[in-house]
Design a protein around this nucleic acid. Structure first.
Length: 114
DNA sequence: AACCTGACGAAGA
DNA sequence: TTCTTCGCCAGGT
C-alpha cells in the first residue's frame, strides 16, 4: 500500500505546488515556474513534469503557457482544446493561440521582485 | 544500463 | 532581428 503521492524531487515538488496554486483565470509561463521553483533555466523540465504529473496530481496544466503568450502544445487540436479550457475560465485570446500576458499572467512575482 | 527525448527559455551569433 | 545552441533532469525505449 502506501505508494500514495511520491514526490520525485524538490524541484518537481515546487513545480507541482506552484501550479496547484495558480488561480482560476490566470496563467503562468514555463520559465516563470522554473524560476519560482528554484531553477531559472529548467523550463524544459517543467514541461515534462507537467506531462508526467498532471495526470497523477490532477494539475491545471492548461494554465501553463509559453513565455511569449502562446500555447505550447504539439498539435493544433491540442491547442484548440487548451484554448477552450482557458476561455472557459474567462481568458480572452488576442490571436488564434495567443494570450495577453500583461493581463492574465499570475503576478506571484510581486512577492519576489523581479 | 545507456542513450534519446521533451507542453521551454534565454543568451549568443 | 531571426536562427542556433546550451541548460535542466526525469521517463521512456
Amino acid at each position: 500500500m502506501k505508494r500514495c503521492l511520491i514526490i520525485p524531487s524538490i524541484f518537481t515538488e515546487n513545480v507541482i505546488q506552484i501550479i496547484k496554486s495558480i488561480p482560476k483565470g490566470r496563467v503562468l509561463t514555463y520559465g516563470r515556474i522554473a524560476k519560482l521553483a528554484g531553477n531559472p533555466r529548467a523550463a524544459r523540465q517543467v514541461s515534462w513534469t507537467l506531462h508526467s504529473s498532471s495526470k497523477k496530481y490532477n494539475l491545471p496544466w492548461h494554465r501553463v503557457i509559453s513565455s511569449n503568450g502562446t500555447l505550447a502544445m504539439v498539435s493544433t487540436e491540442d491547442k484548440q482544446y487548451h484554448k477552450k479550457l482557458l476561455e472557459l475560465e474567462g481568458v480572452k485570446f488576442t490571436g488564434e493561440f495567443k494570450i495577453d500576458l500583461k493581463k492574465y499572467l499570475w503576478d506571484i512575482e510581486s512577492f519576489n521582485n523581479i
